[in-house]
């Protein structure tokens, strides 16, 4: 048998080797995003041969680049608001009042939501938006996103409300709180980690979705960043790496900030949520 201290040292070496490889694996693809936007002669490799901020100043002058970030923000914010608000109410109702077959219905909706986000449902979605005069409307995009995200949001939040002890609500009720007061004062604050999780999840989903705004929005002034990213081509028809990389960085910053905020505020973990 080996000397235990030797084994401990070996285990430690193994551990740190593994963690370094892990670090490399996850960091490697991101290096390009960190270097290329500042490169005067951008290529697909990772290097800063000549540092510049020129790429960003080009973007600032682009008529669609910055507004598209604002558009993305509107879509993501609107969707997150609707999704979290409606999902929280529905999840609470489903978790507290007995409705026959409620779990089956939820699972069915969850499965259906995978169809609607798929490409095959594009035509029905387009026609539906057309009939409702929601083409080229942000509200239309938000509603379509909300419809697709709600089942999973309800599912996640219901897990939070299901795990909330009943005695809090009962206690408030005995003190005379109305059902809506109970929801406002007790339930919503107590499932806040869940609300944060769902908000982040909804924002991130909308932020990166290309297909839905692409088919529902006509006016380039209303394009979100995900669509604008595909419009940067040089005159020769080649992808314009300078603009793409710089815009990718700008486009990524909000989600990084969101991550930093949430991880600072809530520690970015699942708080007893999604369990079972």
């Amino acid at each position: 048998m080996k000397d235990p201290t030797v084994r401990a040292v070996l285990a430690k070496i193994g551990r740190y080797t593994f963690l370094s490889v892990l670090l490399g694996f996850f960091a490697l693809p991101m290096l390009w995003l960190a270097s290329t936007p500042f490169n005067a002669h951008p290529t697909l490799d990772v290097s800063i041969s000549s540092f510049t901020l020129h790429n960003f100043s080009v973007l600032l002058k682009d008529p669609y680049a910055l507004p598209s970030l604002w558009n993305s923000l509107l879509l993501a914010g609107g969707t997150a608001l609707l999704t979290v608000g409606f999902a929280a109410a529905a999840a609470y109702a489903l978790s507290r009042v007995r409705i026959p077959g409620r779990n089956g219905i939820l699972y069915a909706l969850l499965l259906l939501s995978s169809i609607v986000t798929g490409t095959a449902a594009m035509v029905p979605l387009f026609e539906l938006a057309f009939k409702l005069h929601l083409i080229d409307s942000r509200v239309g995009v938000i509603l379509v996103f909300t419809g697709g995200l709600l089942p999973a949001a309800i599912f996640i939040l219901k897990d939070f409300t299901d795990n909330m002890p009943r005695s809090y609500e009962e206690s408030a009720r005995v003190f005379g709180a109305s059902p809506f007061q109970i929801m406002r004062h007790i339930v919503l604050p107590m499932i806040r980690p869940g609300l944060a999780t769902v908000t982040v999840w909804a924002v991130v989903n909308v932020w990166s979705n290309f297909l839905i705004p692409y088919i529902l929005i006509r006016n380039p002034d209303k394009y979100p960043a995900s669509v604008v990213l595909y419009t940067f081509y040089t005159e020769g028809g080649q992808p314009d790496l300078a603009l793409i990389s710089a815009f990718s960085l700008l486009y990524s910053i909000p989600v990084v900030l969101l991550y930093l905020f949430v991880s600072h505020r809530y520690g970015f973990r699942f708080h007893g949520g999604i369990k079972r």
């Binding site: 002890p165 005695s167 809090y168 009962e170 206690s171 005995v174 004062h185 007790i186 604050p189």
Partner: peptide, 10 residues
């Protein structure tokens, strides 16, 4: 007014 076994303090 009711006091629960787990106190149910918010």
């Amino acid at each position: 007014a009711m006091v629960f076994q787990d106190y149910a303090l918010f």
